[in-house]
Nucleic acid binder design. Structure first.
Length: 303
DNA sequence: GCACTAATAT
DNA sequence: GATATTAGTG
């Protein structure tokens, strides 16, 4: 029975979270124009690869170009750090082609979900930055990105182990409890179920499927950041806001060009964790279509 | 030299 | 607090 539960939570999990719009192109958002040019990278969704410095921001109203989940400089403030205006040393006339910095990566719940998914399929042992990154197959995602996130994720797991150890609730229960009692724990990590085997490396007992209660009380930075990026994308930007008013993060599953070779001797007992992008077949999803649950990661205010 | 982790910086 | 970057280590 326990197995079915496992399969159950996972299935439901993926069913509700994996949608095509989650995998949007990020090629041109994380990768700076110069880099893209240098590497001759083109967006798969756009036939336009104009290296010009003035890409039409709103040229395609019907385009799927969704705003970046990339933190943009202050919208209202007059601080443009993207122009290489840091410290003043790099005055005008700098060569932007080389020393460009990627925008800060924002780990949206969707992205984090993918992360957890990858880690779950790999097992704790093989879950190292490089492997995770490869399995995630997210365009533009770097090993450093994953490493940094992984570090924090491990801390989170550790916290939960500590809580579950004496609480008697269990991993998921601990997550719920933590989320419920610890306001500080409520944020990103609580948005994705933690694979049971993570928190009980040697325990025989499992935990009932207790999805973290939809305590989406406070929507915070995660959403705020995404919304902000959506509202006023302005880094080096292009892409305009979709007419739907819908925004998602612009990550795109990497093209099949990158082969994920098996790094570990044997992976976990899970499925092959196929290169995400196969399951995305949910045409319905628009904001007010009403057909499907419009994702609960961005609490619009209900509940 | 590469990759991982922990620590530290932004 | 969230990410990025650096430093130490295998």
């Amino acid at each position: 029975m326990r197995e079915s539960e496992d399969g159950n939570w996972f299935s439901k999990w993926e069913e509700e979270f994996l949608r095509p719009d989650e995998l949007m192109p990020l090629t041109q958002t994380l990768i700076t124009p110069d880099l893209a040019i240098a590497f001759d990278i083109r967006s798969p969704l756009t036939s336009n690869n104009n290296p010009s410095v003035s890409p039409p921001p709103l040229q395609n109203p019907a385009s799927n170009h969704l705003p970046a989940a990339v933190a943009s400089p202050h919208p209202g403030s007059a601080e443009f750090t993207d122009s290489g205006e840091l410290g003043g040393g790099t005055g005008t006339g700098e060569e932007p082609a080389r020393t460009l910095k990627r925008p800060r990566l924002v780990w949206t719940p969707q992205l984090h979900k993918r992360f957890v998914d990858a880690v779950a399929h790999l097992g704790i042992k093989n879950a190292v930055p490089k492997t995770i990154m490869q399995l995630m197959s997210v365009d533009g995602l770097t090993r450093e990105n994953v490493a940094s996130h992984l570090q924090k994720y491990r801390l989170y797991l550790k916290r939960m182990q500590g809580l579950s150890g004496g609480g008697g609730g269990g991993a998921v229960g601990a997550a719920a409890a933590a989320a419920a009692s610890d306001p500080a724990t409520e944020h990103l990590f609580a948005s994705s179920p933690v694979p049971p085997h993570f928190l009980r490396p040697n325990a025989d007992h499992f935990l009932p499927f207790v999805p973290v209660p939809a305590h989406h009380h406070h929507h915070h930075q995660q959403m705020a950041a995404a919304a902000a990026a959506a509202a006023y994308h302005r880094p080096v930007g292009h892409f305009g806001s979709p007419p739907n008013g819908q925004f998602e993060h612009p990550f795109l599953t990497r093209q099949a060009q990158q082969h994920v070779h098996r790094v570990g001797p044997q992976l976990h007992s899970h499925g092959p964790l196929q290169p995400y992008a196969e399951d995305l077949e949910s045409p319905v999803n628009n904001a007010n279509g009403g057909g499907r649950k419009v994702l609960t990661l961005f609490p619009t205010g209900k509940d």
